[in-house]
């Protein structure tokens, strides 16, 4: 699971959960994939990304690196920043870990790089 994917995941389908976002991420095993830098991709995808969720998640897993807490106005022209965004969004792969619903505390396991968001009938 890429952090880009994590940025879209929510547990709002659970009973009595309003937004279920962002899901707390814990990582037991991760990899750094070789993905060629694509400036256009980062520039096009960033408007869809919730930056606060990205930064708090990076902080939680110890990967914040040089990313600022707030996205500066001129981020589109800052190549260093675009490269770092590319690294955290698509190069980091979470292989084993878990996601936790911020409201209910329900934990969803991540195995083989795949988050398991299935729930029981009485949970939703």
């Amino acid at each position: 699971m890429k952090l880009l994917t994590h940025n879209f995941l929510s547990s709002r389908f659970l009973k009595n959960v309003a937004t279920g976002y962002p899901l707390l991420l814990r990582v037991n095993e991760k990899e750094l994939r070789e993905v060629e830098f694509d400036q256009d991709f980062v520039q096009n995808i960033m408007p869809k990304v919730d930056y606060n969720c990205l930064v708090s998640t990076l902080m939680a897993i110890g990967e914040q690196g040089a990313l600022p807490n707030e996205l500066p106005e001129n981020w589109r022209e800052n190549e260093e920043l675009l490269k770092e965004l590319h690294r955290v969004l698509v190069k980091i792969e979470v292989i084993v870990g878990e996601l936790e619903c911020p409201e209910s505390g329900r934990v969803f396991p991540i195995k083989d790089g795949i988050p398991n968001m299935l729930c029981q009938e009485d949970e939703c």
Binding site: L4, G113, I114, M117, C119
Partner: peptide
């Protein structure tokens, strides 16, 4: 896993994504 697609185990009746995303 060769990039381009990220997989999520989930039910179509309980899609685990934030609204309007």
């Amino acid at each position: 896993r060769n990039g381009g697609v990220d997989y999520i185990l989930a039910d179509g009746l309980e899609l685990p994504f934030r609204r309007a995303s």
